[in-house]
Design a protein around this nucleic acid. Sequence first.
RNA 1: GCCGUUGUAGCUCAGCUGGUAGAGCAGCUGAUUCGUAAUCAGCAGGUCAGCGGUUCAAGUCCGCUCAACGGCUCCA
Length: 681
Amino acid sequence: MDISINLPDGSSRSIPEGSSVFDLAKSISPGLAKAAVVGVVDGQQVDVSHTLQDGDEVRIVTKKDPEALEVLRHSAAHLMAAAILEEVPGAQLTIGPVTEDGFYYDIYLPEGVSMGEGDFGRIEKKMAQLAKKGQRFERCVAPSRQSDVFREYVAIDGGANKFKEEIIGDLEKLGAFSDAEDAPEVSFYKMGDFIDLCRGPHVPNAKWLKHTKLMKLAGAYWRANAANEQLLRVYGTAFFSKEDLAAHLHMLEEAKKRDHRVLGEQLDLFHFQEDAPGFPFLHPKGTSVYNNLMEFMRVQLHSRSYKEVRTPLILSESAWHTSGHYDNYLENMFFTKRKRRDKDDAQNIIDNADEDRPMAVKPMNCPGHLMIYKHRMHSHHELPLRIAEMGLVHRREASGVRHGMFRVQAFVQDDAHHFCTPEQIEGEIQLLIKFFFEVYGAFDLSDVRLELSTRPEKSIGSDEMWEKAESALKKALDAGGREYQVNEGDGAFYGPKIDFHIRDSLGRSWQCGTIQVDFSMPERFGLEYVGADGARHTPVMLHRACYGSIERFFGIVTEHFAGAFPLWLAPVQVKILPVSEKFNDYAGKVAAKFDDAGVRVEVDYSDERLGYKIRAATMQKVPYLVVVGQKEADGDIINVRWRDGDDIGETTVEAFVEGMPPYTVPALAASLREQTVEAAE
RNA sequence: GCCGUUGUAGCUCAGCUGGUAGAGCAGCUGAUUCGUAAUCAGCAGGUCAGCGGUUCAAGUCCGCUCAACGGCUCCA
């Protein structure tokens, strides 16, 4: 008896009853059979050993398909788990999923069992042995806890493993081991002596897993909850070929060179030191970039009728009680603490002197803006009122989370608050989403992810307020047709938010922009406006930041451009390189002309040869290198090359400056406006 | 905060099983006056993160603290 199988191209094929995906592949071509990783039957991934039924829709996945790599890595995680069980007696397996660039397996190490990166060599060797043996991955479904498969599994890992037991328990709650129609299967995969609970599917055998490498160790919590057991997360990666693995490792090396912490040192932008953990020291060049980022934002704010303000760094604790920060944000705040000298003994310092009026350093700018709003009466004619501040905030961060410029303890937010009527909320949010994307576009940042975060456990305000705020954000997102991910319970304590996430050179995602709706704080601070009806109403407040923090955005931009900043951001835009000391005077004159034109220029007066100066300036990623020697001095000209080596040739300073792309913030902003207008036409 | 790793000159890194520190680059001095990615020579630079312990002797072994790195959790 033959059965008929439907293939993706619309054709159908007859094969003998009882045939597997592998048999089907073989009947098409032996090459395909060899290349088959898994099959997809009626939209469901299955092993190639899966037995087909009459009428099945079947697609055969080979290593060319992107999903094949995930299967490979999932199998590699099992291979690693098998090796770890042998090499680290006592280790217990929990879960082992695939990640974007590899996989990990979370291992529980009971008291007395330890494992470090020093064990990688042994484990990898064992994995290589297992891969060479090439045993099959065999799927076994356990019909009950009493079945042979289940017993075999328990004997190896399940006996005292509460983690796997919890997973099986969850499956049972869904009906596993029952006779129900839709009961989930409890499947195990055997590879030689190793057996593990797993949904599958897997590559046909361990021979596929030769190009696997352990990457790093990390801590993780069971089910991502800090209250649960601490697990050891072992990361690895796997590829179909040696070349792909090598290319991946090379890519990681290259990404490290783009790391803003590395570039910060090389380009003399900033540094950190132990005396001030998480507080960056910005050097002159870093400050130049930083200020230009801020200036660029100021232009954007100005054209959208924001009013810039400055509010105090420190407010009384009572203000933070009013805002709710004291109750909800205490752990992240810096408080002032007074010290006094003993009246009778000046050497004796009283450390815990009582503060008459305890103060706290601001972790957010909102209370200050609320106070400015409240200072006088407002009419509905003024709304929406957009108050902006390049606000320096301080936030205590747990020691393990600081990370270069991406996660610091003091940073400037390009912060603003929109005070508006409830009717204006949606329009304001739509304006903001468009605004933010325009800014990211100006930096050529296209990989921006949106997330909508809803009410967290610790929060202020009524259910009704939260619902209104969340739906306002959703509506604005949907109106713009933007894709977004919902993070339940991740909102700020005063309101839900839309976050804009951007990736760093190593693919880690960082929150930059944010838009938050807040019905609570205006009420807590007693804000009002007089409506058209002559009555007083409470305005709604939107918190928003586009860069998020200048520090973080600086880091993102540094990595995005690998330190080769666009001309308008480059700390040094033109470097003058005299061919020898004889031309230092002429170099100085040329530099003065650039300087007059508002170009950031430096001269290399060192007693080095031209080749050395070119190399030094190139490594500093200075956009334009200007060579001056006898010929240039004689003709009152310059000789220009671009940082990537392209020769621009001989010209005069005046002609060159004239032809330069926008090199100041106002010029850049003007050219971007022109582009937007052109695009609209 | 948790898990793992690390901390040696301004920077990047050597320093084996304990016997009182080295290189390259950067810096300084001198020679050289040079044409598109490193001219030559010399000099100077370190309480080996900090504190405590073991030892005749600690950069090296042990403990604690701090910081950094990779993750987890948390956030801009």
